[in-house]
Design a protein around this nucleic acid. Structure first.
Lengths: 250, 250
DNA sequence: ACTTGGTAGACTGTCTACCAAGTGCCATGC
DNA sequence: GCATGGCACTTGGTAGACAGTCTACCAAGT
């Protein structure tokens, strides 16, 4: 995630329509790699070799390098000089810290959103709440998760603060990576909270909005912990072979 | 700023002392460039050409490219494909947003710092307050600013949340760049606030610490605005020659 | 059994050279 | 004055080379 940058998707002076500019390769590579990390194709701890990825994606080393460096800056991979990149292995306390950071960022966003909310925004929020709840009740997990993401993203954008937007997006993506298995569990409660949140925003009640958002995130963290604690005793997962570098292919 | 990464400066299992490993060139280039941007050697809006920088720093294009991309991701420069990088020119509202983000991040940090404060940390904070105030009274601007930075940095680190640390550091550096001229003006009040803040932290009063930090940052923002408003009418600075590309040197 | 030394292969970090395509500037021509 | 076309410049990407470093592994030596 580019820390600061308009990007072609961002808001532009109305009416300006840039012709299709082919995305820089490094961008596509970056996208492809995060994708593969999130969906598990590149499993945690795996040694990523530049030429290998280059071959896989049909590009040369350079764009791959650039993408890897960005991934490193954003914590998706760890770059060890002279050795290469390994897919990041999240530490025990990392999800916790991530969720704490998210609480701060999104709570502040909610406060500012409440301050600046336009009629239009509120309408969109209400709509998202409605469809989200519907999905949830229908048991469509994927759609629910997606809608949840859209709702949160819209709120941060409503803050009008591009730094908050950017940091929150960064954190959010990481959270979703670690956290996917937990997401479904607390569906119903989550959407009740969303509704209260949107209400507070529409009323312009900053403190209340910030407060609700903070509790909302806090509940999420709690849910993660409970799930973790429940899974703990059961799982003493594979002895986890050290990240061996494969020997010659000959 | 590396979003996540231990780095050689991070805490290590006591007693481990790695030998000096030569930093990758791209890193040094990155450092050199931020340095030059902050101290104004590379003025805002300036057109940065890869080969030029490469020559200037005595390296090849490659490390320069990589450094520029990171600078772009972090908002120090804007990369225009096919043209080159320009040193970022802060928008009107950017400082404001930056300070708002900082308020959220540091306020949360202060809260967590109050929660986890150790005797040692508190002692260090007190010391910093003391010397900071002394510098301030002695009129040593540079030392005051530096100590201020150290104090804030220590507090974020005390939060124990590496994401907060990291984001805050990123924001802080940007703020310091835009903001340097303002820093001196509100010296005395600022250090009184620091003292109250440290007291709250040492007492473990989370809410109070967060509250004070937020107000502290808010005052800073106000100071910036006042100064801005005062300077506005006076300054209609140079017509600002468009970033000309120099024609051939032959 | 444990250390030491040596070897080999695998990668990265960096450099050089090169080409295609896009961008902005300038001068020409109307 | 203003459009137009050309031109120089710069990036984005590719390819190949080379040194330095890191890992694993093997073979003596203790």
């Amino acid at each position: 995630m580019t820390t600061i940058s308009a990007g072609p998707g961002a808001a532009e002076p109305a009416g300006v329509r840039h012709v299709k500019r082919p995305t820089p390769l490094r961008e596509s590579v970056y996208e492809a790699l995060t994708e593969m990390i999130i969906d598990g194709t590149l499993e945690r701890g795996r040694h990523l070799v530049e030429v290998e990825l280059a071959g896989l994606l049909g590009v040369s080393r350079q764009p791959v390098r650039e993408a890897l460096q960005r991934l490193n800056n954003e914590g998706w991979v760890d770059l060890r000089p002279g050795f290469g990149a390994m897919v990041h292995v999240p530490a025990e306390d990392e999800v916790d810290q991530l969720l704490a950071a998210r609480a701060a960022l999104e709570s502040e966003s909610a406060r500012l959103a409440a301050r600046h909310a336009s009629k239009d925004d509120v309408a969109k929020l209400r709509e998202l709440c409605k469809v989200g709840t519907a999905y949830q009740e229908a048991g469509d997990i994927d759609a629910t998760v997606r809608t949840n993401g859209e709702l949160h993203s819209l709120i941060t954008q409503m803050s009008g603060n591009r730094f908050l937007v950017d940091f929150a997006a960064q954190v959010d993506r990481r959270v979703r990576w670690y956290y996917t298995p937990v997401a479904p569990v607390r569906g119903a409660a989550s959407w009740r909270e969303h509704n209260r949140l949107v209400k507070a925003i529409s009323e312009g009640d900053e403190d209340k909005a910030a407060q609700i958002m903070r509790e909302h995130t806090e509940h999420t963290r709690k849910a993660y912990h409970d799930l973790q604690a429940a899974a703990e005793p059961a799982a003493a997962p594979e002895p986890e072979a050290a990240p061996r570098r494969r020997r010659r292919t000959t």
